[in-house]
Design a protein around this nucleic acid. Structure first.
Length: 493
RNA sequence: GCCGCCAUCGUCUAGAGGCCUAGGACUCCACGCUUUCAAUGUGGCAACACGGGUUCGAAUCCCGUUGGCGGUACCA
């Protein structure tokens, strides 16, 4: 394939979501696979729905996920500067370009001015709907005679420009994922190309820009499939060659409808806050609707690129499963060096001066227990907080009573008394305690359960000896003493 | 309603006419390891939507039905 140029073209009407991220990803993969160019274009032709923060969000999200564009707005100054020669890449800055092409369409009679008011259009639709007809433009202005058009234009009557769609015949095109798709022209509406405010609609701006930016392949979500014939008609009217099209299957929520907040689909960047690794999210969503064919589950962005092929993209929609994404994330976490995890753990550290080394030691035992970075806080709470609070009844081991707990804590205190700071390493502690417990004829659980609770305040925690080594002799002695007092206060079982 | 797309375990998927008594992964369950919870190991439950063709042979090809999704704006 020569000269592959693809674009991701979000509109800044909201934050980037998972669906958009997946579209961006597949465009990126396709471009990189074929040594092509990945372009970011901002489609802000609807002033009414414009959300100012969304541009920054889209840019930041794409960057965080590592989908860096070769051409598009300059991240540092997206409105004023751009990377690449085909810009500007923000459609609101291209208003004049669209208008010149509209003139061309008008001259060729491929489009016509429409003076119908919103009110008339609304009541027309309502009437059609009540008569069980397909709501569509009835072509009133299509038949206006030229002199009438001219006089209305001269008088400055508010109007739009519509595409003159053939009334007969059909239109067939090839989709790279779905094969041949056919639409009857009679079912295609006379689409508005230019709004009365002078802004182009998506359809016009999209076609003009794709042509001018030399886009070779349009890869977008399936929701655009029904408007593709309109776009092809536009290419024809402008005497341009249409690009190749590929319509990606949708990503749905757990109730099989379009993904929304209700399904846990936050803005794509929200997953950063939620403790996900960008490469894990990318890995997971790449496998939604695409598979290189095989059993493999893990791919880096490079490996995805090398294995990518648009023909292997599935046709059926898929459901976003946060559970599997968490599992993917957990798998990535487990391969990480503990000291690389340390920066993420820092935010949980409050009132203590803790060395990176100590933090890394702690993370060794936490790493295998978490699915997201966010959970580090939970699992390390005994470490990050100076004082821990818990229900004293927790100190009693499973088969056992208040006395069992007391005996265990006294046992532990006695062992601790004879220890030095230097003894507080994981192997030494383990060795010592396990041997002592063995020679006293007790079971591990009898002693180590109360000890675990004394240290962590939780029934589920990292390894006891790992916690002891990290916290040090002083803190451990203190917590065991506190636990002893708490245990004594317990009612008799 | 009309138009279009789609259809393998609950979910993500492998499957390009015989390799399929349908494979892998998530979830769930059981067991092993073990000081808890995890991680990990072993095993288990679980699917070709339905009906017709085509063919010696169909999850795979064709048609229909049903179901799901998307579109039907001076939104993208």
């Amino acid at each position: 394939m020569k000269n592959v140029r693809v674009r991701f073209a979000p509109s800044p009407t909201g934050f980037l979501h998972i669906g958009g991220l997946r579209t961006a990803l597949f465009n990126y993969l396709f471009a990189k696979k074929h040594g092509g160019t990945f372009i970011l274009r901002i489609e802000d032709t609807d002033a009414a729905r414009y959300v100012p923060e969304s541009l920054a969000n889209i840019i930041e999200a794409l960057q965080w996920y590592g989908l860096i564009w070769d051409e598009g707005p300059d991240p540092l100054d997206p409105f004023e500067k751009s990377i690449g020669d085909a810009g500007p890449y923000i459609q609101s800055k291209r208003k004049k370009i669209y208008q010149t092409h509209v003139s061309e369409l008008l001259e060729r009679s491929a489009a016509y001015p429409c003076f119908c008011t919103t009110e008339r259009l609304d009541s027309l639709r309502k009437k059609q709907a009540s008569e069980k007809q397909t709501p569509r433009y009835d072509g009133l202005c299509r038949a206006l005679n030229p002199s009438e058009v001219k006089s209305r234009l001269v008088s400055g009557t508010s109007h739009t420009i519509r595409l003159r769609v053939p009334t007969e015949g059909s239109l067939t095109f090839r989709d790279m994922i779905r094969g041949e798709v056919t639409f009857e022209c009679a079912t295609i509406d006379d689409q508005v190309l230019l709004k009365s405010d002078g802004f182009p609609t998506y359809h016009l701006a999209n076609v003009v820009d794709d042509h001018l930016m030399n886009i070779s392949h349009v890869i977008r979500a399936e929701e655009w499939l029904p408007s593709t014939p309109k776009h092809i008609l536009l290419y024809k009217a402008l005497e341009w060659t249409p690009p190749f099209f590929a319509h990606l299957p949708m990503i749905l929520g757990s109730d099989r409808t379009k993904l929304s907040k209700r399904h846990g689909a936050e803005p794509a960047l929200e997953y950063r806050q939620r403790g996900f690794l960008p490469q894990a999210v990318i890995n997971y969503i790449a496998l939604l609707g695409w598979n290189p064919g095989g059993d493999r589950e893990f791919f880096t962005l490079n490996q995805l690129t090398n294995g990518f092929s648009i023909e292997k993209v599935n046709k059926a929609p898929s459901i976003f499963d946060i559970q599997k994404m968490r599992w993917t994330n957990a798998s990535y976490l487990r391969t990480m060096e503990p000291n690389r995890l340390a920066p993420f753990a820092r935010k949980f550290v409050t009132d203590k001066e803790i060395s990176d080394e100590k933090l890394a030691n702690l993370l060794v035992s936490i790493r295998d227990r978490i699915e997201t970075l966010e959970e580090i806080g939970e699992w390390g709470s005994y470490f990050f907080q100076k004082d821990i609070a818990y229900d004293p009844a927790l100190l009693i081991p499973a088969p056992g009573t208040k006395e069992t707990a007391l005996v265990a804590l006294i046992f532990v205190s006695e062992v601790l008394e004879k220890m030095n700071d230097e003894d507080f390493t994981e192997p030494v502690l383990r060795d010592l305690f396990v041997n002592r417990i063995k020679s006293s004829g007790k079971k591990n659980g009898e002693i180590l359960w109360p000890l675990r609770v004394a240290i962590s305040g939780k029934k589920a925690s990292p390894d006891v000896f790992a916690m002891m080594a990290v916290l040090g002799r002083e803190v451990i002695t203190q917590r065991v003493a506190t636990a002893l007092i708490l245990a004594q206060g317990l009612k008799k079982a």
